[in-house]
């Protein structure tokens, strides 16, 4: 799986979206698509498992997880370090 596919799988499994992940573009707002704050935490923890890293404190905020694109940017930043 590509990074994008992995992220989409994690969001589909843990984000409790009201719509199928396939119907969302990378830039679409996941919270608007039904993801709750608690669900976003499960997404965060599942991403840490999937990519074997820990999000630093400064990234533990809503904007990091608001779209597939914003998650990708975060993953890229952490993979680069």
């Amino acid at each position: 799986m590509t990074v994008n596919e992995t992220i989409r799988q994690v969001v589909a499994d843990h984000g409790r979206l009201a719509v199928p992940i396939e119907s969302l573009a990378d830039g679409d707002d996941l919270f608007a698509a039904g993801m709750t704050s608690h669900a976003s935490i499960n997404v965060m923890l599942a991403l840490e498992d999937a990519f074997d890293f820990e999000f630093p404190e400064k990234m533990l905020k809503k904007s990091t997880f608001e779209s597939v694109a914003s998650i990708s940017a975060g993953v890229a930043e952490l993979a680069g370090t």
């Binding site: 608690h38 976003s40 935490i41 404190e57 533990l60 905020k61 809503k62």
Partner: peptide
């Protein structure tokens, strides 16, 4: 915990 820091920020 760490997830809680995200809930607090939200």
């Amino acid at each position: 915990g760490r997830p809680g820091r995200m809930l607090a920020a939200n």
